[in-house]
Simulated assay, not measured.
Amino acid sequence: MRTQVSQTSLSAYRSLSTAALTGTEMEVMAVMGDGKARTRRQIADELGWRDGPTCGRCNSLVAKKALISVGEQKNPESNKYAELLQIPPKNPQGVLFQ
């Protein structure tokens, strides 16, 4: 599907910073600030959030390269694997994202 969008609108869209974090993303980064790798479920449990909002925030932080995937961990209750997230080594305390 083609839509007509002016060049100024496209330029404005492309100039939006993905480095700026929302308040809820900052809460996730505060939990991750100790450098430990965690699953999305563990992050949700520490924040007292539901899984859906936590996964959304974690996914956006991965897209912004504020968090990286560092492997998988098996959940003993479900026997399923979950992705482990961690702050990248070049940014051990999340300093750039505060």
Rank of each mutant, 00 (worst) to 15 (best):
I68E: 15
Q98G: 04
G71W: 09
N59M: 04
Q93G: 09
S15P: 01
R38M: 14
L61R: 01
R41Y: 11
L61S: 03
A30D: 11
Q7S: 11
S11R: 13
G35R: 01
R2T: 07
Q98E: 06
P76F: 11
M26E: 10
Q73I: 02
D34A: 01
K36Q: 14
E72M: 07
Q98N: 06
T18I: 10
T39V: 02
L16E: 15
D45E: 15
S6C: 12
T22L: 14
E72P: 00
R2M: 02
V62L: 05
L84K: 04
V70D: 15
K80G: 02
A44I: 02
E83F: 08
G23C: 05
V62I: 03
N75P: 03
K36C: 10
M1Q: 07
R40T: 12
Q86S: 01
D34L: 00
G56P: 02
E27Q: 13
R38P: 14
T54N: 10
I43F: 09
S6V: 01
Q42N: 09
S6F: 11
G56S: 11
L84M: 08
L61Y: 05
T39R: 06
S11F: 13
Q98I: 00
A20H: 10
Q7N: 13
A63N: 05
S15D: 15
Q4I: 02
K90N: 11
L61Q: 04
G48K: 02
R2G: 05
S9R: 11
S9C: 05
T3A: 10
R38G: 11
A12I: 07
S9Q: 13
Q93N: 13
N59W: 07
A66Y: 05
D51P: 00
V28N: 09
Q4P: 04
V70L: 11
A63W: 10
G35F: 00
P53D: 08
A19T: 10
M29C: 08
N75C: 14
T8Q: 14
S6E: 14
P53L: 00
E83I: 15
L10F: 08
M32K: 04
Q98D: 09
F97T: 00
S9H: 12
E77W: 07
Y81F: 14
K74M: 14
I87D: 09
R41E: 12
L21S: 09
R41S: 08
P76H: 06
A82T: 05
S60L: 10
K65Q: 14
E46V: 01
A30T: 07
L85W: 12
Q42G: 05
A12C: 07
T24S: 15
R14E: 15
M26Y: 05
Q42A: 12
R40S: 14
L16P: 00
N75V: 09
K80I: 11
S60Y: 06
V70E: 15
S15M: 05
A19F: 15
E27V: 02
N91I: 02
E72D: 07
P53I: 00
G56C: 01
K64I: 07
A12M: 07
R41F: 10
Q4C: 03
I87P: 07
D34N: 12
K80S: 13
C55S: 10
T39P: 03
Y81S: 08
K74V: 13
A63T: 02
A37E: 12
G35K: 01
L96P: 01
V5C: 05
